[in-house]
Simulated scan of single mutants.
Amino acid sequence: MLRPSPARRACTALVSTVVAAGALAGCTADAEPTPDPTGTATSTAAGTAGDAAPAPSPTEALLTAGPDASSAVGRLVDGFPTDLVTVPADAEVLVSSAQPPDPAGLREISLNLRSPQDAAALLDGVRATVLAAGFAETAGAAAEPGLAAQATFSRSEGQEIVIVGVLDRDGVRTLTLGGRVRTAP
Score class of each variant (00 low, 15 high):
Leu2Phe: 10
Leu2Trp: 11
Arg3Val: 14
Pro4Phe: 04
Pro4Ala: 03
Ala7Gly: 07
Ala7Val: 13
Arg8Gly: 01
Arg9Leu: 04
Arg9Cys: 00
Ala10Leu: 09
Cys11Trp: 12
Cys11Asn: 10
Cys11Leu: 15
Val19Asn: 10
Ala21Gln: 10
Gly22Lys: 09
Ala23Cys: 14
Cys27Tyr: 11
Ala29Gly: 01
Asp30Met: 06
Ala31Gln: 10
Pro33Cys: 10
Pro33Gln: 04
Thr34Ile: 08
Pro35Arg: 13
Pro35Ser: 07
Asp36Cys: 10
Thr42Val: 04
Ala45Gln: 11
Ala45Val: 13
Gly47Asp: 02
Gly47Asn: 01
Thr48Tyr: 06
Thr48Gln: 15
Ala49Val: 14
Asp51Glu: 10
Asp51Tyr: 03
Ala53Cys: 09
Ala55Cys: 08
Ala55Trp: 05
Pro56Cys: 08
Pro56Phe: 00
Thr59Asn: 06
Thr59Ser: 13
Glu60Asp: 13
Ala61His: 07
Ala61Ile: 00
Leu62Trp: 13
Leu62Phe: 14
Leu62Tyr: 14
Leu63Ala: 14
Ala65Pro: 11
Ala65Gly: 15
Gly66His: 12
Gly66Cys: 09
Pro67Phe: 12
Asp68Tyr: 08
Asp68Lys: 13
Asp68Ile: 04
Asp68His: 08
Asp68Arg: 13
Ser70Trp: 05
Ala72Pro: 04
Ala72Cys: 05
Gly74Met: 09
Arg75Met: 07
Arg75Phe: 00
Arg75Cys: 08
Gly79Lys: 03
Pro81Phe: 02
Leu84Ser: 07
Val85Phe: 00
Thr86Glu: 09
Val87Ala: 07
Ala89Pro: 05
Ala91Gln: 09
Val93Leu: 07
Leu94Met: 11
Val95Ser: 12
Ser96Ala: 03
Ser97Leu: 12
Gln99Asp: 12
Gln99Cys: 06
Pro100Leu: 15
Pro101Ala: 12
Asp102His: 05
Pro103Gln: 12
Ala104Gly: 07
Leu106Arg: 11
Leu106Glu: 06
Arg107Glu: 09
Arg107His: 11
Leu111Met: 12
Leu113Lys: 05
Leu113Asp: 02
Ser115Val: 04
Gln117Trp: 11
Ala119Val: 00
Ala119Ile: 04
Ala119Thr: 04
Ala121Leu: 00
Leu122Cys: 03
Leu123Lys: 06
Gly125Phe: 08
Val126Gly: 00
Ala128Lys: 13
Ala128Leu: 10
Thr129Tyr: 02
Val130Ser: 02
Leu131Glu: 11
Ala132Cys: 05
Ala132Gln: 08
Ala132Lys: 05
Ala133Asn: 07
Ala133Lys: 07
Gly134Thr: 03
Phe135Cys: 06
Thr138Leu: 15
Thr138Arg: 15
Ala139Thr: 15
Gly140Thr: 14
Gly140Cys: 01
Ala141Asp: 11
Ala141Ile: 07
Ala142His: 02
Ala143Gln: 01
Pro145Val: 05
Leu147Asp: 01
Gln150Pro: 01
Gln150Lys: 03
Thr152Ser: 08
Phe153Arg: 05
Ser154Tyr: 09
Ser156Cys: 13
Glu157His: 12
Gly158Asp: 04
Gly158Met: 03
Ile163Asp: 12
Ile163Ala: 10
Ile163Thr: 15
Val164Trp: 00
Gly165Cys: 02
Gly165Pro: 05
Gly165Gln: 01
Val166Ile: 13
Asp168Arg: 14
Arg169Trp: 04
Arg169Leu: 14
Asp170Asn: 13
Thr176Ala: 13
Gly178Asn: 09
Gly179Gln: 02
Val181Cys: 08
Val181Ile: 10
Arg182Asp: 08
Arg182Val: 10
Thr183Leu: 06
Ala184Tyr: 03
Pro185Arg: 15
